[in-house]
Design a protein around this nucleic acid. Structure first.
Lengths: 214, 214
DNA sequence: CCCATAGTAGACCGATCTGTATACTCACTC
DNA sequence: GAGTGAGTATACAGATCGGTCTACTATGGG
């Protein structure tokens, strides 16, 4: 693979662009189909195991179109992960804005994960899986992966702050551990309903943690 | 890759062999070096990203030797994971037999993981990472991966039984979640000292879980 | 002495990998 | 009506992939 140099040719031209990060290639109809096919294949079979020829074929698109839009396979990987991240955050936001009580909001994260996982994550968290395949921290996709996990930790910490301000940092980390553990156990099929079990543990944790000091 | 058909030619001849599973190729000096090199490279760069030519070169061995011993790359993967699993269980056993109290034995698992991780797991759990790359459950390595996780869950459940027999199953799962969460958070660098944090959470969990009912 | 075992050295196979190139079509817009 | 952007079709390049093959050497035990 090219040494991370290439992005889609249009990417540099775009003056506005949503915000942060290396990403966001203009999604022409062809590009959209490429992203859909790549997302499905990358997740199901692994990033290294899927070639660009297969992606193009499944998308019903020529390799030239694929390279005109994305510039390199690495960039497709970045878009794949950024797209998943974006969808997940939107999905989570929907779940979160339906509840108000701090305790319920924390548990709503686990509910969202369970729904999300049952709907589209038979093989576990895309970010964890991608992290296992991308060893080089200089890879442009690396920032997307660690970015999501850092964001999740900050979210748990924020939600915990509304409940126990002085122990928010530690409580946020504990919730993060349970959440990640649930995702991994679910993805590897270690035992059934792992995310629900993590939710119960989180509930118990909140009960004792809040009762004790504040 | 060949469709999982091949093992090392000698493997079928061996009448004794340690016990379970598809594995155990006779470790001649050359084979040992192959296994060492493959283990290092697979873990650092990922399984799919490492070719047999590189493994042979790093091991200071010819490709013929490599194929004479292992028969296929898939079999090297199996041996790699089985070897890691064996080492980990031995390492854990050492930690466990130094303590007697049920509570301490549970926490000793987290201590062992922390030591093991700091010594040789900068990129997280080998099994979790391998699971992300091997999507096909029919792959011979799959059983090694799920086997270790099932064994760990059984271990936690057994240890929990000595402490709270009626809630052993649920307590074992909760400990498993914290442990896996700690491994993932450590491997992805989500926050520092993740495994130690998981140990503290386990300690707190044991305190409240035992106090409450039995 | 002989023969199996473990190894080196290195050429080779077909397939697949990422990425590029040429030539052409269609639709929309200025 | 000329130009532009998005697309098809297809061939190709150079490297790397997993795996096989032949020929030869060194060693150690019956």
């Amino acid at each position: 693979m090219s040494e991370y140099v290439k992005q889609a040719p249009e990417a540099s031209k775009a003056p506005e662009a949503g915000g942060e990060g290396p990403r966001r290639v203009p999604l022409t109809p062809g590009a959209r189909r490429v992203l859909e096919a790549a997302g499905r294949l990358f997740y199901e079979r692994g990033i290294h195991a899927v070639g660009v020829d297969l992606i193009a074929a499944e998308a019903g698109v020529t390799k030239k179109t694929l390279y005109d839009r994305f510039g390199s396979k690495d960039q497709i990987v970045v878009e794949y992960l950024a797209d998943r991240d974006e969808r997940w955050r939107a999905f989570l936001a929907e779940h979160l804005e339906r509840v108000r009580a701090p305790r319920s909001r924390i548990l709503a994260v686990f509910d969202a994960s369970r729904d999300w996982a049952e709907r589209s994550l038979p093989r576990g968290c895309s970010m964890i899986n991608a992290h296992a395949e991308i060893s080089d921290p200089a890879h442009p996709a690396y920032a997307v992966i660690t970015g999501q996990k850092a964001w999740m930790l900050a979210l748990f910490t924020d939600l915990a702050r509304a409940l126990a301000p002085r122990r928010a940092k530690s409580l946020g980390r504990s919730l993060m551990l349970l959440h990640e553990g649930g995702l991994v156990a679910y993805g590897m099929g270690i035992f059934p309903d792992a995310i629900d079990h993590a939710r119960q543990d989180a509930q118990a944790l909140l009960k004792t943690a809040v009762r004790s000091t504040e």
